[in-house]
Design a protein around this nucleic acid. Structure first.
Length: 226
DNA sequence: CGCCAGGGCCTCA
DNA sequence: TGAGGCCATGGC
């Protein structure tokens, strides 16, 4: 077993299953309060996949809890997890709803751009495309960079794409890996792991959780990297 | 009070 | 292509 696989085993054992990406459960029951996105659920419907796509934009350089979570709840309350409705709503009103996620002017534009994109390229059509072309296409949407595009591909469209983020870069450098660029790090993981969507999802979530834990003892991880 | 979060765009060499 | 400024809220 190679280092990348060993790191995964250690993190899974030490941190436990993360169950990304959080999604709002089906069958919103009005009488039982606001439904919030939950970890460990499978995104089954197109609406849930759309919620993940919007969430991927909203969480750019922002904490999920409570900032983005709150925005997702508010969008759901108004039934705005909907391509047409996001296109129709005014910038001002949308900006107010996602205010807690920060950068709300930029993110309003990004959500609008994504909605217009999805109007022309529905999710059920995207999933059938060639993966390399699909990634380029999603990257062409204004406000969507490498990490956001890859989150969408992995968590919303269930494509075997490994997501790299700031935590992953820091952690891998700390463990002695020399890859610097986003694409080199992405290839490192994809070349050394089985093309397993569930594994990719869980691995990235574990790296984020590890990155948040300042007190974590890296000695075991450093050992398997030698 | 300052720092940082599950980044990306624009500008300027 | 890479570095630097900018965007903005909420928790600690």
């Amino acid at each position: 077993m190679n280092s990348l696989k060993k790191i995964y085993q250690i993190l899974l054992k030490e941190l436990g299953h993360q169950g990304w990406w959080p999604v709002t459960p089906l069958g919103n029951c009005r009488s039982c309060g606001d439904s919030l996105p939950i970890y460990g659920l499978k995104a089954k419907t197109e609406k849930q996949k759309l919620e993940i796509i919007f969430g991927a934009i909203l969480t750019q350089n922002t904490q999920w809890k409570p900032n983005v979570e709150n925005s997702i709840i508010r969008l759901n309350e108004k039934n705005l997890i909907d391509v047409d409705k996001i296109i129709e709503i005014s910038d001002k009103e949308l900006g107010e709803l996602i205010r807690s996620s920060g950068y709300y002017n930029q993110k309003t534009k990004a959500l609008k751009a994504m909605a217009l994109f999805l109007k022309e390229n529905p999710i059920n059509k995207l999933v059938k495309m060639d993966l390399v072309e699909l990634r380029k296409l999603i990257l062409s949407v204004h406000g969507v960079g490498p990490e956001t595009a890859d989150c969408i591909l992995l968590y919303a469209l269930d494509k075997p794409i490994f997501v790299i983020d700031a935590y992953t870069k820091r952690i891998m450098h700390k463990l002695g890996f020399k890859e610097e660029s986003y694409d080199d790090l992405k290839e490192l993981f994809e070349d050394n792991l089985d093309k397993d969507v569930s594994l990719y999802k869980e691995y990235h979530a574990l790296l984020v959780e590890l990155g948040k834990r300042k007190e974590f003892d890296y000695s075991t991880l450093l050992k398997v990297c030698n």
